[in-house]
């Protein structure tokens, strides 16, 4: 018990104003530390950077404007470039799709192992969780570079790298969904003597599938960006083309690739947003 006994209104006021003062002191202190961190960080960043902020801001629009000018000069032929780079875009989208499919499958397995009271051995739970943490923390780029060294410059290393990361990232989200399932159907199935596989298939999967799909679509969107980025290190697709265009300073090509990438991301963003609202917003029945 706290030693303080409050007997009068004055004491209550005194006590509360003391608390208030302490609260202000803490938030003031926190704010001061935060500002100090930000300021010193900026000074450090400015020092470490090869070019400064002030001269940088003046030349900031030079590069984008050069790209726009070159695109303008290319004229109607520019639209032909969109068609030229379309196969590369398809490759990038395929990379992302395959990686998302494999990632989702592994994530489902991992998340089932990482959920308590779902009939898996309790020893597996922390192991599966730590595995997912590590898989999530591994930057895709590292795995991709390692695999490119072994398998050569093809899209497959990027797919494996993205799938690896996706398994960890989705696995965590999936296991959170699993934790929140209604246990009623599960108990009903157990009472009827259903096997573990049947319990998961008919009591868990129908409940979690809408959320799974929604997260998967979100991840697909992220993975398109990731596979475009990994193209920069030689994994193929639109990233490789973009790297070539940037190193040769072909403004029109850069613009065409930007537009393609941007349109794709926007399209998928809109489509998956719509689908996600449909799935999670309404009651989604497997049998319907």
């Amino acid at each position: 018990m706290t030693a303080q006994t409050i007997t009068s209104v004055d004491q209550i006021l005194e006590h509360s104003s003391g608390l208030e003062k302490r609260r202000r002191l803490y938030s003031g202190l926190f704010g001061a530390i935060f500002i100090a961190l930000v300021v010193s960080g900026f000074i450090a960043a400015e020092e470490m950077n090869s070019g400064g902020f002030v001269q940088g801001i003046t030349s900031f629009f030079d590069y984008p404007s050069a790209i726009v000018v070159e695109t303008w000069e290319a004229g109607p032929a520019w639209f032909g470039l969109l068609w030229t780079y379309f196969p590369a875009l398809i490759e990038t989208v395929n990379m992302a799709a395959v990686a998302t499919i494999f990632g989702t499958v592994f994530a489902m397995g991992l998340s089932l192992a990482a959920t308590r009271d779902l009939g898996v051995h309790p020893v597996l739970v922390p192991i599966a969780r730590r595995t997912m943490d590590i898989m999530r923390a591994f930057p895709e780029l590292i795995i991709a570079l390692f695999l490119i060294f072994m398998l050569g410059t093809t899209p497959v290393p990027a797919i494996i790298a993205i799938a690896f990361h996706t398994s960890g990232a989705l696995g965590k989200l999936f296991s959170e969904v699993n934790e929140n399932v209604d246990r009623g159907p599960l108990e009903g199935m157990s009472a009827a003597g259903a096997s573990w596989f049947k319990r998961v298939r008919w009591a868990v999967i129908p409940q979690v599938l809408p959320n799974y799909t929604s997260y998967m679509l979100l991840r697909f969107e992220i993975n398109i960006r990731a596979s475009a980025i990994l193209g920069f290190v030689g994994a193929g697709g639109i990233g490789t083309e973009l790297r070539k265009a940037i190193s040769w300073s072909n403004g029109a090509d850069i613009m065409a690739l930007f537009v393609l990438l941007f349109l794709t991301i926007m399209l998928i963003d809109q489509f998956s947003g719509y689908l996600r609202r449909r799935l999670v917003g309404s009651s989604f029945m497997l049998a319907s």
Binding site: A44, A45, E46, M48, N49, S50, G51, G56, F60, Y63
Partner: peptide
């Protein structure tokens, strides 16, 4: 291109 290499 604008700010050079570095954390900034």
């Amino acid at each position: 291109r604008a700010f050079g290499l570095g954390p900034l």
